[in-house]
């Protein structure tokens, strides 16, 4: 159920959707779909998105990750934040065509988590939370961008291989250029992921928040697997200087694992420091008694 307070996010999604349609449309019909519309609707969406997060934060007096829905919304914000900065630095041509639809799809998915039952244990200390969450989120954002770049790479390589020289072929940059950017985003995200995981490890060790058998938590196990897959990617690039389609496919696999780690684990029954609202209330009642 969409509550009234989430209207801004719905507006954000609509703006992202417009941006997606225009960013794809401007490739096929550049005279009908203006690229500026795509850019400005995205920026406007991002602006409202930011405002919405501030509102959520003020409401709960915490960083807006107090439930699955909020953390999803924050992650999407991180993706766009990183993208806008990278685009400003590196001028990524046509990446929006590949990234904004992903962002839009994730946003719509996020909306389905609104009103979910899992809430964060509010007594969690703030320092560790920020040190654990922020690097991981920014890292995930970088991986999402590298995922979009991989799709772009595979599209361009397919077009070159099968000699399909349509309007998209002309708009996309060179394989080598995409490959370099992919490498840059992964090598930007990986240290952050590592940092976030290390802080998380310290956190569970010192505060014992995940219980004795913390290493059996799905999120911990899969987080490690994600770390390993990107470590393997970096190794292939750095040590064996590997390029091409294999790297692109592996990057896509890496992103799927990121998504699964982030969201899929909740379907598997992992709570990872979140608690069911009902349990929490039950505990509170017990405490009062």
């Amino acid at each position: 159920m969409i509550t009234l307070t989430h209207i801004p996010f719905v507006i954000t999604i609509v703006l992202y959707l417009i941006s997606s349609i225009w960013s794809i449309g401007c490739i096929v019909h550049p005279f009908v779909f203006n690229k500026k519309v795509a850019k400005w609707s995205m920026m406007m969406g991002f602006f409202i998105h930011s405002g919405f997060l501030v509102f959520l934060g003020l409401e709960s007096s915490n960083i807006p990750i107090t439930n699955v829905y909020e953390s999803f919304v924050s992650l999407i914000w991180c993706i766009l934040f990183v993208y806008i900065n990278l685009d400003y630095l590196y001028k990524l041509p046509s990446l929006d065509t590949f990234l904004i639809p992903v962002v839009t799809a994730l946003s719509i998915w996020a909306l389905t988590f609104d009103g979910g039952d899992l809430f964060m244990n509010v007594s969690l200390p703030n320092f560790w939370l920020i040190a654990h969450i922020i690097p991981i989120f920014v890292g995930y954002a970088a991986f999402t961008i590298s995922f979009s770049l991989s799709i772009m790479y595979l599209t361009q390589q397919r077009q070159l291989k099968h000699k399909l020289f349509g309007p998209l072929f002309n708009k996309l940059p060179s394989l080598e250029g995409i490959d370099r950017l992919m490498w840059k985003t992964i090598s930007f995200g990986f240290p952050l992921l590592t940092l976030g995981l290390v802080f998380g490890m310290f956190w569970v060790k010192t505060q014992n928040i995940l219980g004795e058998q913390w290493y059996l938590d799905y999120k911990v196990v899969l987080g490690l697997a994600t770390w390993l897959i990107y470590a393997a990617l970096l190794h292939m690039r750095l040590v064996s200087s590997f390029h091409g389609t294999k790297i692109a496919c592996l990057t896509i696999a890496g992103f799927c694992l990121v998504l699964f780690t982030f969201i899929g684990t909740f379907f598997m029954g992992s709570k990872h420091a979140f608690q069911k609202m009902s349990e929490q209330t039950h505990e509170e009642i017990l405490n009062i008694q």
Binding site: P173, L175, E176, R180
Partner: peptide, 8 residues
């Protein structure tokens, strides 16, 4: 032009 789509 093709070469430019492969190499930067």
């Amino acid at each position: 032009e093709f070469a430019e789509k492969i190499f930067q």
